[in-house]
């Protein structure tokens, strides 16, 4: 794997807590991750696991009056969490671009496509109007939208879902950011379009030598695109490693459960695996101990750590808690 010095985004023990009726509840707790150039890191987990919150924390988009953020996010030599709003605005869009889930609502319905792509250039470059216009056309071309001249004068509702997502990508890459955060970029799209958008993202990443944080709930998307994978449950990373490690040798009970609940070839006569119980709400989340323990009640308490930490199992492959060691599903003898 890439050496320790090469990483350019280093997330260290980041926690994000939201204020609910006067008390703070952590949606993300003690997450540490490294992202390198030319690398796609997937953060995978189900709704409510904190993956989107982590993304918006990196972007600094939370209302400081309602959130408490701890830890360190080191990006190109500075800690993003110590920057003020003006300093952050120089990074957002310029050094870090973001791609959102629903391309229709992510675009301003009343502004022309061209103007929305150009907006980032207005704030981060000293280009002339003509240069910006040329760059916008170049971007529209790059993301594979036919008839760029016409499209830049159109409004979001006049485009198809796939084309809109390409526009959102064009916005994110306008200033050639070093890092792109893609939050469920293909969830709202048809499968064939999904494949095209993922391929496009990979191509752009290679061209710009950017790093990508890909946030998704779709294990198939992860297997197709990611280099590194972090699996999140209840605000914590429970397992991380290379895509190969995670898919070929999943260790944490949650990762194994998720993979097992996917419909497989030749699974038609069997019931799918169902994880017991459900994800607790923010307020009811256990504060200590293994957070996945209530979902695998047959595992004795002695198997869990009192304060679960990440354990390196093989180079680059880490698992939280000790409960993975002797873990068996109930139907396995």
């Amino acid at each position: 794997m890439a050496d320790e010095e090469n990483h350019f985004l280093k997330i260290e023990d980041v926690s994000t807590a939201f204020k609910i009726q006067g008390k703070y509840y952590p949606a993300v707790s003690d997450v540490s991750l490294d992202i390198h150039n030319d690398e796609i890191v997937a953060i995978v987990g189900e709704s409510g696991c904190g993956k989107s919150t982590l993304a918006t924390t990196i972007m600094g988009l939370h209302d400081p009056a309602e959130t408490k953020i701890g830890g360190k996010i080191e990006f190109e030599g500075q800690d993003l969490l110590t920057l003020n709003e003006d300093q952050m605005n120089k990074i957002r869009g310029a050094k870090i671009g973001m791609i959102f889930q629903d391309p229709l609502s992510a675009l301003n319905p009343l502004k022309r496509i061209g103007d929305q792509i150009q907006e980032g250039l207005d704030y981060h470059t000293k280009m002339t109007e003509a240069e910006k216009k040329a760059r916008v056309l170049e971007l529209v071309n790059q993301v594979g939208i036919p008839h760029p001249e016409r499209v830049i004068r159109q409004f979001p509702h006049e485009l198809s879902g796939g084309m809109r997502q390409r526009v959102v990508i064009a916005i994110a890459i306008a200033c050639k950011p070093d890092l792109m955060i893609a939050d469920e970029p293909t969830t709202a799209l048809d499968v064939t379009i999904q494949a095209q958008i993922l391929d496009l993202l990979k191509d752009i990443q290679k061209e710009n030598h950017a790093g990508i944080i890909l946030i998704t709930h779709d294990l198939g998307v992860v297997a197709e695109t990611a280099d590194e994978v972090a699996v999140m449950y209840a605000g914590q990373v429970v397992e991380k490693g290379s895509a190969k490690q995670i898919f070929d040798n999943p260790l944490h009970p949650y990762t194994r459960s998720l993979l097992r609940s996917m419909p497989q070839k030749d699974s038609e006569n069997d019931d799918l695996y169902v994880i017991e119980g459900s994800v607790p709400s923010l307020q009811k989340m256990p504060q200590d101990g293994c957070k996945f323990a209530p979902r695998i009640p047959w595992v004795p308490a002695s198997e869990h750590e009192a304060h679960p930490t990440m354990h390196e199992v093989e180079p680059g492959h880490r698992v939280r808690c000790t409960c993975y060691k002797n873990f068996k599903f109930q139907d396995e003898a």
Binding site: D86, K90, R92, G93, F100, N108, L110, Y123
Partner: peptide, 29 residues
Amino acid sequence: HSDYVRTARSKGVPVRDVFRHHIFRNSLL
């Protein structure tokens, strides 16, 4: 709280300008 405002902010548009160029215009409509 809309998504397009989040998009604008993630482009690095200062809050003041987000209100001017996106929010006020769309709200007055």
